[in-house]
Every structure is written in structure tokens, then in C-alpha cells.
Design a protein around this nucleic acid. Structure first.
Length: 883
RNA sequence: GCCCGCUUGGUGGAACUGGUAGACACGACGGACUUAAAAUCCGUUCCCCGCAAGGGGUUGGGGGUUCGAGUCCCUCAGCGGGCACCA
């Protein structure tokens, strides 16, 4: 036999596990699977034919599939490969199913890494970004992704962000934008604002200087005015993962409670607090206010120790995590608050580091008996702890609070007029009394805060506003948009390059003509990603959002991206869509009707003897199975598998994999081993397995075990029994695979296809119709794999004698008559334990099933003469004999 | 700290709405082919007892609901994501 022994591509830096081909085989190029060649061939054909260009066609049903566009960081990584493979399978599958598919790609091109590169390598952010985009576009193309490239844009294109600036001005006019002083991480050495990730242990990541909290005037978007809608609409997002909806719900954090005012001894003002536990008001033993509360700041002016305490709190940085993880600390002020219902009871007012100014009113009353954090605080500062809620059934006398606050339901105790009331009744009563007294009101507060969009950075979209001493804040007239970035900027000194630019910010006021100053803040890059999906509908339009095109294509039917965007990006986009709707740009609310969140790509980690991380290609496997350094042979310790990251060096370069195995192998591996929403472990063995499978498939078509009848041959009149079974299996596979693809169970879809391939290999050549079934089976496999491994599928489709591209061919349809078998396998249990199985006719009656089961010797043995108490029969499924 | 997930053979995973746990692969082992190796093809492979027939156990730990639990509930543990200026 002339074999087609494939050659395993060499993994960089590793010993090849498979041998090179013999010279004789290399000559038979026609028959060997050459991924590189066929992938280039089909990519060229799709491109020249414009196979994936989408145009609006009102007579056809549209399907808009979108993957989260990448930040052009340099090269594509495995996370991209996974994300874009998933999207491409959906796009190609829906296309085959007859949809008019929109599948665009672009670049989230503004952001900090470009500025970091400028700082470190003296390369201009624009140049760095453009070069990265070119590299990454080439890499994406090598994956064979079915993108409509003519719609490509980068968010740093002035032709993109000029519309964003116009939107901002419309938001400003609509009252959705305001200015507010808010806290930032300030690096005094670099004279710049740091992102939370740039603050490491309270110090600037580059300067090492101790970071301060500082208040800066910021541009804010009023996302909170949509809080209710954003919250309530979540339940309509049926094709979103439940957990993402939950996370957003918690993020918005709507709580209904009571806003109340405590009278302060010796002062004329009152302290406003918000609470959802007003039923515990009789257990209140202190009040706590945020270090940034106006009262705290006022008191600090005459209390240096308090001022120092506040300064210490401010050194914690601005992240919620840092604040919450810090030890709970407080400072007792001279102020006391009067308990609203207990005459003569004064509550000390503390400044506490765990009270957030951004939530509620920045002040709380503390009830240590029924709130864990309050309890810890009370124990630290020796404050009284009073139990005021008794668990259901517990007597008041036996309730005491130890190390744990009681936060459950129950009945009020030690609470004067509330005693005996349930938590809900007590809340109701307190609310009514306080409202009547004018010392409280019902309130709904949100954890969600308005979106601060100001960034004191260069590489972002400029805020199109001018500050004029006479006229105040003046919008840049729309006919003067875009406000573009100056190109001649320096990154070699501290501060915001835009602010430090010698001329850029000096302009005349558009209103009065006097010298004025440009806003030097740029937008948070989440602004660009909050509407890019809509721009793809009309990427080249002079209009920001062409009404007709947007109405046809949007919303996005299937959005695919990482779970790490579950909250911010998705929530901002939902908000932005509503804001655009209210400003007349759009006519819908929810940007993404379907969402798939994919898991991360992980890989084993390696370290050398000195504990330094090693790249996988620096490591090889020794004879005894242990890992050693590829060059020195020194022992290497292996760590557990973690998300691929440059810092741990556990990365595999997609370009290397595609170069040696081909894109189809990489795609197949990404799809076949794990379900999309779970993390995937990248392994050489897995890649090689995928590659071997494609070779096997190739051989089955190139050198079939039976001579295939010509394409289009009618089915044989009679099929042998086994051929008939395989024939049915083909059609069952079509149904199962389609269902799996509909539900994004790509790993199952592939398992089904492999199963079918195994069934074809087992075909009996002597049976009538076997060759015909083989052809139908091979064609089906090729068609079912088309969305997943498009190049090899096209090539084999052509080799099987088809002239129409697989890309332009419809999805296979199953013959319903072949789907249902005449018999079914019934499990027979005794007391829930499997004893045997039975082959019975489909839809055998319950009594017949029961009788057949009881007649089994294994059942009789298990029953062992005991009386049968009950027999549970589920038709077509199971019989359970209970004794 | 708070919110949200995940946990099934040596490994990745499958199991539709509670109904035969381990599909499909990877790895390993055995065999065929080969001077030999690789590749390829065939077979075995959850664990324990047993020559076998057969039996017992098993879905992170513990408990519960049910005729029946990987699936539902409670609880504990481990791991991961997010926490508002990374994208």
C-alpha cells in the first residue's frame, strides 16, 4: 500500500515525536494533507470572491454575530484564537443555514499599553498601534475567519471617534453628562493618575512613590438614571448566561430601604443615613461616616489626629477591594447622634474606613447584633452589642450574640414598640413613624455609580469641550469635529502629554472669541467599545449610525467574548445604547440579544532551578518523563496549569501552531476538548490529536476503503443491515450535530462527527449499498465540519466532486424517516440499581415493560423472593422494581 | 472582604427537562505491519473482589429530598473570575 503517512509538524524547540516523510511519499503531494497549501488556497478564493461581504437585504433574515474586538497589543494570543474560532463557527454555520450573516472585525485601538510602549521604547502610540494592527490582521487572516473586512475600523480613526465626540455633545445637551470631583490614584512622582492595576501595594508601579488619593474634576455619564431599566431589562435577556445577569444585577445593587436623619447633639444639621435594616434601629449603638464625608472633613479641620486618620484612609487607594480588605478601623469624633426612638440615648459618631462615600449618603448606623462588619467594629472599640431580632422560635431571653451577628429573619425583641413584630412588619412600622415625624423617607439606592469617563492620558479620544473664563464650559461646535490629537508629543517627562503640549490646548472660545483652554482629558476606552458594534452596520457612512443599516442589522444576535467583561463593558454598552436611543441615534435598547462567555486558555507553567519562569519551548521532556531545560538539561519544575500570561511565560504562540499544523488543527483543538464557557487546557498532545484526526479524515477521502460511486448517484435499492444502520447513523448525526451547534456545544458536535467517522470505518464492504453509504457519510462529515475546519472541508468537498463551494452550500438536512429506531434499550433496576437492559419495541406498553422486566433472571435474583412493593415504569426508558 | 462561578477515570470531557455514569478523545498497555523505528491499523483500559459467571464501590467531603441524584436542597473544602482608571 502506498500510504499517506503524514508528517507531524515540529513543535518549536521540541523533539519531533513523529518522523519526517520518506522521499517517495513527498512526491505524491496530491494525496497528502498539506494544511499550509490548502489553507492559503481557500483563503485566497474566499477573498477574491468576496464570500463574506454582507449587504442589507430586507428579503432575507439577518444574523449578526460579533466577537469582542481586540486591543491591538502586538500579536494575537490563544485567547483570541479561541474567541474568534467560536465566532467563526457560529457565523459559518448560520450562513449555511440560510441567514444573511454580518460578521465584522475591528480594533479597540486606544489605551494605556500604547502609551507605555511610547514611554519605554520611544515609539509613537499611533505608529505602535498601526503596526500591531497590521500584524494582527495578518494573523487573524491566517486563521481563515469569515470576516467582512471592508467594514474594518480602528477606534483611533478620527472618522470613528468624531462621531463619538458628537454623541458626547448630544449627551451633554441631554443632561446625561456632568462634572464632578472624584477620587483618583495620584502618583506624585510621575505627576499622573494611575489605574488601579498600576498601584501595587500602595505604590506607583514605575515610580515606586506612595500613591495618594486625590480629587480631580471628572466628566461623568449618568448611567444611574438608567439603573432601574438596566436592572429590570436583565430578565428579558434570555439568551445571556444566568450568571452574567446575576453579576450585573448585583453590580447595579438596587436596594429599597429608609433614608433617615439623626439629630446631632450640639449641632443644627442632621446626619443622613441610608439603611435597609431599620427593623434593627433599637440595636443601633453607633454611627459611622466615611472619611470623605463632609462632616468628617469639617471635624478634621480642628482635630489633627482625625485629619491624620483620614489621610491614612486615603492612602488605601481608590479600589473597593483595597478598602474592604483593609482592617476595619474607626476614629471616634466628638459628635454624638440622638437615637430617634430612645430618649436620652446618644450614639457616638465614628469616622470609619469601611464606609464608602459613594454609596447611600456615606453614613450608616451600626447595629452590631445583626451585621457582621458592625459586630467586628463594635468588638474592636468596645461598643455595646444588643440583640434585637430573635430567630424564629427562640425566646428573647435566650438570644445572645457571640462571634457571629444574626442576620436571618425573626421577630423583634428589646425593641419597645416593635417587640413581637416580624422583620418586615418592624421595617414597615419604623418607616411609617419616621415619615410621619419628618425624620425619614422611603428610598431606593443603587450600588451602581455614575460612570467617570475622564482620563488624564494622551492615547484616547479627546473630550470635545473648551473651558472659557467668561463662558464656562463650551462645547466644540459640531462642524469643528473631530478634535484630533496632536502628533508631536513627548512621553519622557511626568504628566499628561496633552496638558503639557505647548500649543494644542490654547484655542479661542467658540462663543466669545477670547483666549480659552481645551479640555485635556480623553475618554475612558470603554466609551469606544460601548457603540462599536452599531458602527459596524455602517462603517463607512458619513452618518454616525445610518438608520436603515442599523435597523436592519442590529441588535447583535450573538456576542462572544471573555467572562471578564461580564460587568463593565457589557453594562456600559447597554447604557450607551439607551442613551443613544434617547438622543435619537437608535431605536432599540439592548445591544446584544445573545451572549456567550468563553473561558480562558490555560497552560502548564515551568520554572528553572532558580525559580525563573520558562517558556514551553525552553523545556523538553526527558527519557524518564520529567521535564528538563531544552538546552542545559537542568531539571525544570512544573507548576499547575494557569491562564496563559506573558508574565508566567506559559504562552504558546498561535502563529507557530498555525505555521506548523495549520489553522484547521488549531481551530479543531480549540473546539473539541472543552465546552466554550469553560477554561481550556492547551496541550501539545491535544493539538497533535486534532492534527491526526484531520489526516485520518483526509485519507478517508483521498483513499477510501471502498471505491466511491460518483457524486450524485442515487441510493441503492437495498442496503445491507449494517449499511442501513450506518445510513441511519448519518442522519441522526446531522440532527445531533445541528442541535449541538445551535447550543454552542462544539465539543459534542465534534464527538458526534468522530463517532460517525468510526462507524464509516466499520462499514462492511460486501454489503449492498456500502459504498453509497460511505460517500454519503463522508460528504456529511465534510459538511458538518465545514464551520469548524473550513479549509480542509472545502478541499475535501471539492475532491468529492462538488463544484459549488462548501461555503456557498446549504447545511445538510436529515431525513426524518431515518431518525427513530424501532427498538429502544430499557434499563431495568431493582431498588435503583441496574440489573440488566432489555431491547423492546418502541412505545411498548407499561404492563408489557413491567412483565418483561420481572421475567429477567437477574431481576429475580436481585429480588431474592422478597415481595415486590412497587414497580416504577417510565415508557421507553426504565423499569425500577422496588422491594 | 463582597458578588459570581467551577469541582465526574491517569488526563480533557459526555450524560436532553432527575431515569443504563464515563460518549468522544488524549495517555498508557498489548498486538499487526516493518530489518528496525516512526507513522498507520486492530484490541484492552473507572476502582476493588473473582479463573469465570457474577458481585461490590464510584461524579471534591458530609448530610437531605426521591422508587431513582453527576443533575434538586443544606453544609464544608479547594480552585477560578469580577470589584468601577487593564482591556
Amino acid at each position: 500500500m502506498v500510504g499517506f503517512a503524514p508528517r507531524a509538524p515540529r513543535l518549536a524547540g521540541q523533539r519531533a515525536r513523529l518522523s519526517p516523510p520518506s522521499p517517495a511519499l513527498r512526491a505524491s503531494a496530491m494525496s497528502r494533507y498539506n494544511a499550509k497549501e490548502i489553507e492559503a488556497k481557500w483563503q485566497r478564493i474566499w477573498r477574491t470572491r468576496g464570500s463574506f461581504h454582507a449587504t442589507e437585504d430586507p428579503t432575507r433574515k439577518k444574523y449578526y454575530v460579533l466577537e469582542m474586538f481586540p486591543y491591538p497589543s502586538g500579536r494575537i494570543h490563544m485567547g483570541h484564537v479561541r474567541n474568534y474560532t467560536l465566532g467563526d463557527v457560529v457565523a459559518r454555520y448560520k450562513r449555511a443555514c440560510g441567514y444573511n450573516v454580518l460578521h465584522p472585525m475591528g480594533w479597540d485601538a486606544f489605551g494605556m499599553p500604547a502609551e507605555n510602549a511610547a514611554f519605554e521604547n520611544q515609539v509613537h502610540p499611533a505608529v505602535w498601534t498601526r503596526e500591531n494592527i497590521d500584524t494582527m490582521r495578518r494573523e487573524l487572516d491566517s486563521m481563515g475567519l469569515s470576516y467582512d473586512w471592508p467594514r474594518e475600523f480602528a477606534t483611533c480613526d478620527a472618522s470613528y471617534y468624531k462621531h463619538e465626540q458628537a454623541m458626547f455633545l448630544d449627551f451633554l445637551a441631554a443632561g446625561l453628562v456632568y462634572r464632578k470631583d472624584s477620587w483618583v490614584n495620584w502618583d506624585p512622582a510621575e505627576q499622573t493618575v494611575l489605574a488601579n492595576e498600576q498601584v501595587i501595594d500602595g505604590r506607583g508601579w514605575r515610580s515606586g512613590a506612595v500613591v495618594e488619593r486625590r480629587k480631580l474634576p471628572q466628566w461623568m455619564l449618568r448611567i444611574t438614571s438608567y439603573a432601574d431599566d438596566l436592572h429590570d431589562s436583565l430578565k428579558r435577556l434570555e439568551r445571556w448566561p444566568e450568571r452574567v445577569r446575576l453579576m450585573q444585577e448585583n453590580w447595579i445593587g438596587r436596594s429599597e430601604g429608609l433614608r433617615m436623619w439623626f439629630a446631632l447633639n450640639g449641632r443644627s444639621d442632621r446626619l443622613e443615613v441610608f439603611t435597609t435594616r431599620h427593623d434593627t434601629i433599637f440595636g443601633a449603638t453607633f454611627c459611622a461616616i466615611s472619611p470623605n464625608h463632609p462632616l468628617a472633613e469639617e471635624l478634621a479641620a480642628s482635630d489633627p489626629a482625625l485629619a491624620e486618620f483620614i489621610a491614612e484612609c486615603n492612602r488605601l487607594g481608590v479600589s473597593e477591594k483595597a478598602i474592604e480588605q483593609a482592617a476595619k478601623k474607626g476614629y471616634k469624633t466628638v459628635v454624638t447622634a440622638r437615637h430617634p426612638f430612645i430618649e436620652g440615648c446618644d450614639l457616638p459618631v465614628y469616622v470609619a474606613n469601611f464606609v464608602l462615600m459613594e454609596y447611600g449618603s456615606g453614613a450608616v448606623f451600626g447595629c452590631p447584633g445583626h451585621d457582621q462588619r458592625d459586630l467586628e467594629f463594635a468588638r474592636t472599640y468596645g461598643l455595646p452589642v444588643i440583640a434585637v431580632i430573635a430567630p424564629p422560635g427562640a425566646a428573647a431571653a435566650e438570644v445572645s450574640i457571640g462571634d457571629e451577628a444574626y442576620t436571618g429573619d425573626g421577630v423583634a425583641i428589646n425593641s419597645d414598640f416593635l417587640d413581637g413584630k416580624t422583620v418586615d412588619e418592624a421595617k414597615q412600622e419604623v418607616t411609617e413613624r419616621m415619615v410621619a415625624e419628618g425624620s425619614g423617607e422611603r428610598a431606593t439606592v443603587y450600588r451602581l455609580r455614575d460612570w467617570g469617563i475622564s482620563r488624564q492620558r494622551y492615547w484616547g479620544c479627546p473630550v470635545p469641550v473648551i473651558h472659557c473664563e467668561q463662558c464656562g464650559i463650551v462645547a466644540v461646535p459640531k462642524d469643528q469635529l473631530p478634535v484630533t490629537l496632536p502628533e508631536d508629543v513627548r512621553f519622557d517627562r511626568p504628566g499628561n502629554p496633552l496638558d503639557l503640549h505647548p500649543t494644542w490646548k490654547h484655542v479661542d472660545c467658540p462663543d466669545c472669541g477670547r483666549p480659552a483652554r481645551r479640555e485635556t482629558d480623553t475618554f475612558d476606552t470603554f466609551v469606544e467599545s460601548s457603540w462599536y458594534f452599531a458602527r459596524f452596520a455602517c462603517a463607512r457612512s458619513e452618518q454616525p449610525l445610518d438608520k436603515k443599516a442599523v435597523a436592519y442589522w442590529l441588535p447583535v444576535d450573538q456576542y462572544i467574548g471573555g467572562i471578564e467583561h461580564a460587568i463593565l463593558h457589557l453594562l456600559y454598552s447597554r447604557f450607551f445604547t439607551r442613551a443613544l436611543r434617547d438622543c435619537g441615534y437608535l431605536a432599540f435598547d439592548e445591544p446584544f440579544t445573545g451572549l456567550l462567555t468563553q473561558g480562558m486558555v490555560c497552560h502548564q507553567t515551568f520554572r528553572d532551578e532558580a525559580g525563573r519562569w520558562l517558556y514551553p519551548e525552553q523545556v523538553r521532556r526527558a527519557e524518564d518523563g520529567s521535564y528538563v531545560h531544552a538546552e542545559t538539561g537542568a531539571p525544570v519544575s512544573t507548576g499547575r496549569s494557569e491562564a496563559m500570561s506573558k508574565s508566567r511565560k506559559n504562552v504558546v504562540d498561535p502563529a507557530a501552531i498555525i505555521g506548523s499544523f495549520g489553522a484547521d488543527t488549531a481551530r479543531l483543538f480549540m473546539l473539541s476538548d472543552s465546552p466554550p464557557e469553560r477554561d481550556i487546557e492547551w496541550t501539545d498532545a491535544g493539538v497533535e490529536g486534532a492534527w491526526r484526526y484531520l489526516n485520518r479524515l483526509w485519507r478517508m477521502v483521498a483513499e477510501p476503503p471502498l471505491p466511491l460511486p460518483p457524486s450524485g448517484t442515487a441510493i441503492a435499492e437495498r442496503l445491507g443491515p449494517h449499511a442501513e444502520t450506518v445510513h441511519r447513523a448519518i442522519h441522526k448525526t446531522i440532527v445531533a450535530t445541528s442541535g449541538d451547534l445551535d447550543r454552542f456545544h462544539f465539543n459534542r458536535a465534534i464527538a458526534r462527527v468522530r463517532e460517525l467517522g468510526n462507524a464509516l470505518s466499520a462499514l462492511n464492504a460486501d454489503e449492498p449499498g456500502a459504498a453509497w453509504v460511505l460517500r454519503e457519510g463522508l460528504e456529511t462529515i465534510v459538511r458538518l465540519l465545514g464551520p469548524m475546519t473550513p479549509h480542509i472541508a472545502e478541499e475535501l468537498w471539492q475532491a468529492l466532486g462538488h463544484e459549488v463551494l462548501l461555503t456557498d452550500s446549504p447545511w445538510p438536512e436529515a431525513d426524518p424517516a431515518l431518525l427513530a429506531d424501532q427498538t429502544v434499550t430499557i434499563a431495568v433496576q431493582v431498588n435503583g440499581k441496574l440489573r440488566c437492559t432489555l431491547e423492546l419495541d418502541r412505545d411498548t406498553g407499561k404492563q408489557a415493560m413491567e412483565a418483561a422486566a420481572l421475567a429477567q433472571p437477574s431481576v429475580a435474583r436481585a429480588v431474592g423472593g422478597r415481595p415486590v412493593r412497587r414497580v416504577v415504569v417510565v415508557p421507553n426508558r426504565i423499569v425500577n422494581v422496588v422491594v
